[in-house]
């Protein structure tokens, strides 16, 4: 049996979302059409509104509705330290720690030649400009702890160090509050290599 065209279109739309397979797409579509009309319209409006209003911050490339995001325009924050992350959602995660008072720079990805992502596809040239223009003293690299994130960190370090700026990488470690026995070999191995002297 074929679904009516509009339903099939809706299913296909959901199916194109990341992490959504055909079955979930179908469930979501059926759920959506079971809702009252105004609920659906509210959702559609939220989507269109977000898409229309949001843009990248002209300095750090995180999401904002203004020219600059609220972190970049916050004069109370330390602008001599920049934390480099891969994705806008990583900014939120870092902010949750409440421990970082500097500024951010979002790359929107990591180096991956297989997928055709080189330094030009990431916001690296803009980062180098910022370092030169904003009197940055330290760059903290918080790219993902995987092969691509590590290579990106290595690339950044080679570009930034010659500018006389301190470059650091966040530590590889164990999840706090967990048990050692549940750590996988790779994480534990790197935690061991990055061990620190006790005072």
């Amino acid at each position: 049996m074929h679904y009516p065209q509009s339903l099939q279109e809706l299913i296909n739309t959901f199916n194109s979302f990341p992490g959504v397979g055909p079955k979930t797409a179908q469930r979501l579509a059926f759920y959506l059409i079971s809702l009252p009309g105004e609920e659906v319209e509210k959702m559609a409006r939220a989507m269109v509104k977000a898409k229309k209003r949001l843009r990248y911050c002209s300095r750090c490339f995180s999401f904002t509705e203004e020219e600059q995001c609220n972190i970049c325009s916050d004069t109370g924050r330390n602008s001599f330290t920049i934390c480099v992350v891969q994705h806008p959602r990583d900014v939120l995660v870092m902010e949750k720690t409440g421990q970082f008072k500097g500024k951010y720079h979002v790359l929107h990805g990591a180096l991956s030649p297989v997928e055709g992502v080189g330094p030009e596809e990431l916001n690296i040239p803009r980062l180098l400009e910022r370092i030169k223009n904003e009197g940055v003293k330290e760059v903290i690299i918080a790219t993902n702890p995987n092969v691509e994130g590590d290579a990106t960190a290595s690339y950044l370090s080679r570009q930034i160090k010659p500018l006389g700026v301190r470059v650091t990488r966040i530590a590889f470690g164990l999840p706090v509050g967990g048990d050692l026995e549940y750590a996988d070999e790779l994480t534990l191995g790197r935690a061991l290599e990055g061990r620190i002297e006790l005072e």
Binding site: L111, P113, G118, V147, D150, A151, T152, S154, R158, Q159
Partner: peptide, 27 residues
């Protein structure tokens, strides 16, 4: 092998830059 695949993919590119290649060497 994941690093190797990335690095080889970079080497396939005719205009490969030395500094791009070197960023994969450490890992």
């Amino acid at each position: 092998y994941r690093v190797l695949r990335q690095r080889n993919s970079l080497l396939k590119d005719q205009a490969v830059k030395r500094k791009d290649l070197e960023s994969w060497d450490e890992i």
